[in-house]
Design a protein around this nucleic acid. Structure first.
Length: 869
RNA sequence: GCGGGCGUGGCGGAACUGGCAGACGCGCUGGACUUAGGAUCCAGUGGGGCAACCUGUGGAGGUUCGAAUCCUCUCGCCCGCACCA
C-alpha cells in the first residue's frame, strides 16, 4: 500500500517552534504590522485567516505522524470507523459530513485518554472505474489511483485525523489476495458453491446482481430494469447464517431500530409446515408446499405452482391444456421482475389438468399454474385456502374455485357465500375432521404433528433471504480463484499461488463485453491437482466481498501471512463506533456481519459482530432537494474549504442538525459559523493584547464567579453531549454561549478591572472544547495561549462540581400552574422559606387575596406552585 | 397491507426523569461606528394587546398542582418491506 503520510520526511523542527514561521509570513504584499501580531515570541495573524492556519497544521500533523495508532494495553482501545468511500474522483457533502462526525469522536476520545484507531481506505473495485476506463480509454487501475490521490488530499484538507499507515485499497493485489483467500476459506467450509439458477441480470451493467442489489426490480447502480436469466454462478451460503444473523440483531443494542428492522424484514423468517401432496395421476410424484397456516389444511380447494416449478412440464404433458399452459409459462418467464410484481398485474391461473391429493383427508383438488407464485420462496408451490388467505380468496373468486370455511371466528357464523374477504384471524376449527372444535392456534401444532406422524409433512422455518450471488461478469474486480480442469473439475487455486492477479494489459474500449474471458494468457492454466490443461474462472467477485472484511484488514494492513493478524484484530475489534449512510442497511452491513460470523467460526477472531455501535447519518440536502448538477444546487467541500476554511465547514455541518437527521445545507448558516469562529478568534487576540499590556487583576465579584461557573457548566454539557448523546449541535451551541458570556463579561466590567486569570481560564477551556470540532483553529489558539504541546495531545477538560454551585438562584412562582412571579433566593433555601418568600411577594399576595390555598408544590431550586380555589 | 420514524416561531433546531416552551444559529427590525456596509458592536424579535394579561408545541379528548414530554383517538408527512404462501 502506498503511504502518502510518510512521503514528507519528518523534520527535526518540532511543530511548536517558530523557525519556519507562519505560512504566508513572507508574502511582501501584506502589510506586516497590521496583519501579524506576536505573542510570547510566536507570530500569528491578527484576523482569522483559516487558509494560513489550516495548511500549516495539516503539514505538522502529517510530518509528526500525529494520529498513528498502536496496541497499548495500558489504555482502553476505541475503534472509530467511517464507511470507506468508493474512489469516484471527488468528495461530496455526504462524505464531509460522515468524516466530520467520525473525526470529532476520534479527537474527543483521544483527549479522553482512549487508544483510538481511526483508519481510512478505498473501496476501489467496481463498475464506475471500469466504465470510465471504457469511456476514456484509460486503465481502471490508473484511473482509480488518480482518484484516490485526489480524494485523499481533499480528506486531509478537512483536517481529519486518520492513521494513514493503515490505509487499504481493495483493488491492490496485496489486498484482494486476501479477499480471494477468504473466498477459498468459504469454499473449504462448504459455504461457496456454484449452481445454475435464475439470477438477476442487468443488461446495462452487463452482469448479474445479488438480490440485495435489486431495488424494486431495478439495478441499484444504474436503475435499469433487471431481467431474469438462467446462469451458472457462484454463491455464498449466507442462508446458513440466517438464524444467527437474525437473532444476534438483539445483541446490537446501539444500532438504530430502523436498520435492525430492515435486516429483520430482509431475512424474513417465518415458521410453518412443509406439507407433501401426492399427485393423483402420477403416484410416484409429489408436490411439497410451505404454509404458515397448517390449521387451514382442510380448507384447501386447489394447488398452485410457480411457472418455473420443475414439475409443470411433466404434469401438462399430453393434456388438452398443454399448449396453453406452456405458452403462459414462457410468457411469465420472459417478463421482468417489475412486470411480474407490479400492482396492476392480475392474478392468472391455468389448470394443468391434474389433481393433488390432500394428505389430511384424501381430497383431490386441481393443480394450477399461477403467475403470482414465486419459485424463489418456500417450495414454489402454494396450497390454496381461499377462505383464510386474501390472495387465495381473490384468486378463487376470479377463477370460480370453491371456498370452504374451516376457521370460525368467535361468535360469528361465516359462510363461503356471504364472505367478501378472507378471514385470516384465529378461531375454532370446523369442517376439519378429528380437529373440529380445536382452537386454530393449537391446530397449527396439532396438524403439523399429525402430518409428521404420517410422514406427510414436517415443521419448517423458511427465510426470505437468498444465498448471496457473488459472480460478476466484469473485469475490474477480484478474480474468483477457481480453476476448471477437464479431468478434476473445479479446483481451488492453492493459497501459495494467490493472488490470482488481474491481467493489466487489457483492452476495455470497443464494443465487446469487458470480461476476463478474452485473455488467453489469463484463462489458460495448469490444473493444480493433475497439472493437466485447465481454464480459470473468468468471473470476478462482487465488490461487497471486499468491503465485508476491510475493517479487519485495518488492524494489520501489512500482514503478508494472513488477511489479518488475530492478535491485532482481537485487540482492536469490534469497531466501537461505525458511521455511514442508511443505504447500506441490508447490503454492506448484512454481508459484513455474515463474514464476521464465518471468521468467528473459523477461530480467526473473537468478535461475533463487527460493529458494536452504528450511526446512520442523515443525507445532505439543499433547498429541500438532494444536491445534483441538474438542479444546480451543489455545494462542494472544496468550495467551502476555500471560502471559509475546513473548520467552518466542519462546524456548520455538525451544528446544523443532529447527525442522524437529514440536513439542509444553508449558505447563511455557514456564514454564521464562520462568524462565530472569527468572533472567538477576536476574543483571543483582544484578551492576549490585554494580558501583555497590563497586569492581571484579581477582582473576584459576581461577574467573575458567573463566568467561571459557566466555564464549568459548558465543560459538563459538551462532554455529555458528545459522549452520551452524539448531539454535536447542542455541544457547539453551548460553546457559542460560553464565548458570548466572555463577551458579555468584557462588556460589563471595565477593562482595567477585568480578571485576567478568569479570562485566561475561559479562553483555554474554550479552545480545548473546540479542539475536536475546529482542530486547526484550536491548535493555533492553543499555541498563542503559550502552550508548547499540541492541543490534540491535551487531556479533555474536567469540570469542578463545586464551581457549578451557585449562591443564589431564581425560583419561579406559579399560581395554579401559571408563572406569576420570580424570586431570587439562596440556592439551598429550605421549602418552608421558599413558600414564605413566595407568599410575601407583592404580586403573589395580591393574587392570593381572598382565595383559599388548596395545596403548595415546591421543587427545590426551581419553582413554587400555589394552588388556590 | 405490515414495520419504523417524525409533526415545536419566518427557517435550521433546543427543552435531561413531566417543572419558566422557543437555547444556539440564520433571517428580520431598530440603533451605534462608518465615505460606505454585505465588517463589527448594542438592543429587540412566537402570536394578540398601550398595559395588566390572554394565547401558543398538527387536531380532539384524558391523567396531573403542572404536559412539547405520559395515555386514548385522529390528521398529515417521511422511510423501509411488500403477490413471501
Amino acid at each position: 500500500m502506498e503511504e502518502a503520510a510518510g512521503s514528507t520526511p519528518a523534520s527535526s523542527t518540532t511543530c511548536f517552534t517558530n523557525k519556519g514561521g507562519t505560512a504566508g509570513i513572507n508574502n511582501p504584499s501584506l502589510d506586516r504590522a497590521d496583519f501579524f501580531i506576536i505573542y510570547g515570541g510566536r507570530v500569528t495573524v491578527k484576523k482569522y485567516e483559516p487558509a494560513l492556519i489550516e495548511e500549516k497544521w495539516q503539514k505538522v500533523w502529517e510530518t509528526e505522524d500525529f494520529y498513528r495508532s498502536e496496541i497499548d494495553h495500558s489504555k482502553t482501545k476505541y475503534y472509530v470507523l467511517e464507511m470507506f468511500p468508493y474512489p469516484s474522483g471527488k468528495l461530496h457533502m455526504g462524505h464531509m459530513r460522515v468524516y466530520s462526525i467520525g473525526d470529532v469522536l476520534a479527537r474527543f476520545l483521544r483527549m479522553r485518554g482512549y487508544n483510538v484507531i481511526h483508519p481510512m481506505g478505498w473501496d476501489a473495485f467496481g463498475l464506475p472505474a471500469e466504465n470510465a476506463a471504457i469511456e476514456h480509454n484509460v486503465n481502471p487501475a490508473r484511473w482509480t489511483a488518480q482518484n484516490i490521490e485526489h480524494m485523499k488530499k481533499q480528506q486531509n484538507r478537512l483536517g481529519v485525523s486518520y492513521d494513514w499507515h493503515r490505509e487499504v485499497n481493495t483493488s491492490a493485489p496485496d489486498y484482494y489476495r486476501w479477499s480471494q483467500w477468504l473466498f477459498l476459506l468459504m469454499y473449504k467450509r462448504g459455504l461457496a458453491y456454484k449452481k445454475k439458477a435464475s439470477v438477476n441480470w442487468c443488461d446495462h451493467c452487463v452482469t448479474v446482481l445479488a438480490n440485495e442489489q435489486v431495488e424494486k426490480g431495478l439495478c441499484w447502480r444504474c436503475s435499469s430494469v433487471v431481467e431474469v436469466r438462467e446462469l451458472e454462478q457462484w454463491f455464498l451460503s449466507i442462508t446458513d447464517y440466517a438464524e444467527r444473523l437474525l437473532y444476534d440483531l438483539e445483541k446490537l443494542e446501539d444500532w438504530p431500530e430502523r436498520v435492525k428492522v430492515m435486516q429483520q424484514n430482509w431475512i424474513g423468517r417465518s415458521e410453518g409446515a412443509e406439507i407433501t401432496f401426492k399427485i393423483k395421476e402420477f403416484p410416484g410424484e409429489e408436490i411439497r408446499t410451505f404454509t404458515t397456516r397448517p390449521d387451514t389444511l382442510f380448507g384447501v380447494t386447489y394447488m398452485v405452482l410457480a411457472p418455473e416449478h420443475p414439475l409443470v412440464k411433466r404434469l401438462v404433458e399430453g393434456t388438452e391444456n398443454e399448449q396453453a399452459v406452456l405458452e403462459f409459462v414462457s410468457e411469465v418467464k420472459q417478463a421482468t421482475e417489475i412486470e411480474r410484481t407490479a400492482e396492476e398485474v392480475p392474478k392468472i391461473g391455468l389448470w394443468t389438468g391434474r389433481h393433488a391429493v390432500n394428505p389430511i383427508n384424501g381430497e383431490e383438488v386441481p393443480i394450477l399454474v399461477g403467475n403470482y407464485v414465486l419459485m424463489a420462496y418456500g417450495t414454489g408451490a402454494v396450497m390454496g385456502v381461499p377462505a383464510h388467505d386474501q390472495r387465495d380468496f381473490e384468486f378463487a373468486r376470479k377463477h370460480d374455485l370453491p371456498i370452504r370455511v374451516v376457521i370460525q371466528p368467535e361468535g360469528e357464523n361465516l359462510t363461503a357465500d356471504s364472505m367478501t374477504e378472507a378471514y385470516v384471524g384465529e378461531g375454532k376449527m370446523i369442517n376439519s375432521g378429528i380437529f373440529d372444535g380445536l382452537d386454530s392456534l393449537d391446530g397449527i401444532g396439532k396438524v403439523t404433528g399429525y402430518l409428521e406422524e404420517q410422514g406427510q409433512g414436517r415443521f419448517r422455518v423458511t427465510y426470505r433471504l437468498r444465498d448471496w450471488l457473488i459472480s460478476r461478469q466484469r473485469y475490474w474486480g477480484a478474480p474468483i480463484p477457481i480453476i476448471y480442469c477437464e479431468k478434476c473439475g473445479p479446483v481451488p487455486v492453492p493459497e501459495s499461488e494467490l493472488p490470482v492477479e488481474l491481467p493489466s494489459e487489457v483492452e476495455l474500449s470497443g464494443n465487446r463485453v469487458p470480461s476476463l474471458a478474452h485473455y488467453d494468457y489469463f484463462v489458460n492454466a495448469d490444473c493444480p491437482v493433475c497439472s493437466g490443461p485447465a481454464r480459470r474462472e473468468t468471473d470476478t467477485m462482487d465488490t461487497f466481498i471486499c468491503s465485508s472484511w476491510y475493517f479487519l484488514r485495518f488492524t494489520s494492513p501489512d500482514n503478508e501471512h494472513a488477511p489479518f493478524d488475530s492478535g491485532e484484530a482481537n485487540y482492536w475489534m469490534p469497531v466501537d463506533q461505525y458511521i455511514g449512510g442508511i443505504e447500506h442497511a441490508v447490503l454492506h452491513l448484512l454481508y459484513a456481519r455474515f463474514f464476521t460470523k464465518v471468521l468467528y467460526d473459523a477461530g480467526m477472531i473473537n468478535a461475533e459482530e463487527p460493529f458494536s455501535r452504528l450511526l446512520a447519518q442523515g443525507m445532505v440536502y439543499k433547498d429541500g432537494a438532494k444536491m445534483s448538477k441538474s438542479k444546480g444546487n451543489v455545494v462542494t467541500p472544496d468550495e467551502i474549504v476555500e471560502q471559509y476554511g475546513a473548520d467552518t465547514g466542519r462546524l456548520f455541518i455538525l451544528f446544523a442538525s443532529p447527525p442522524e437527521k437529514d440536513l439542509d445545507w444553508n449558505d447563511q448558516g455557514v456564514e454564521g459559523c464562520h462568524r462565530f469562529l472569527r468572533r472567538t478568534w477576536r476574543l483571543l487576540i483582544e484578551c492576549l493584547g490585554q494580558f501583555e499590556s497590563g497586569e492581571g487583576f484579581s477582582r473576584a465579584g459576581e461577574s467573575e464567579a458567573e463566568l467561571e461557573r459557566q466555564v464549568h457548566a459548558t465543560i459538563k454539557k459538551v462532554t455529555h453531549d458528545i459522549q452520551d448523546r452524539f448531539n454535536f449541535n447542542t455541544a457547539i451551541s453551548s460553546i457559542m454561549e460560553l464565548v458570548n458570556a466572555a463577551y458579555a463579561y468584557r462588556q460589563a466590567v471595565d477593562e482595567k478591572n477585568q480578571n485576567h486569570g478568569v479570562l485566561k481560564e475561559t479562553l483555554e477551556k474554550t479552545v480545548l472544547l473546540l479542539a475536536p470540532f475546529a482542530p486547526h483553529l484550536a491548535e493555533e489558539a492553543w499555541q498563542m495561549l503559550g502552550n508548547r504541546e499540541s492541543v490534540h495531545r491535551q487531556s479533555w477538560p474536567q469540570y469542578n462540581p463545586e464551581k457549578l454551585l451557585v449562591d443564589e438562584t431564581e425560583v419561579v412562582i406559579q399560581v395554579n400552574g401559571k408563572v406569576r412571579g420570580r424570586i431570587t433566593v439562596p440556592a439551598d433555601s429550605p421549602e418552608e422559606e421558599l413558600i414564605e418568600k413566595a407568599r410575601d411577594n407583592e404580586r403573589i399576595s395580591e393574587l392570593l387575596a381572598g382565595k383559599e390555598i388548596v395545596k403548595i408544590i415546591t421543587v427545590p431550586g426551581r419553582l413554587v406552585n400555589i394552588v388556590v380555589r
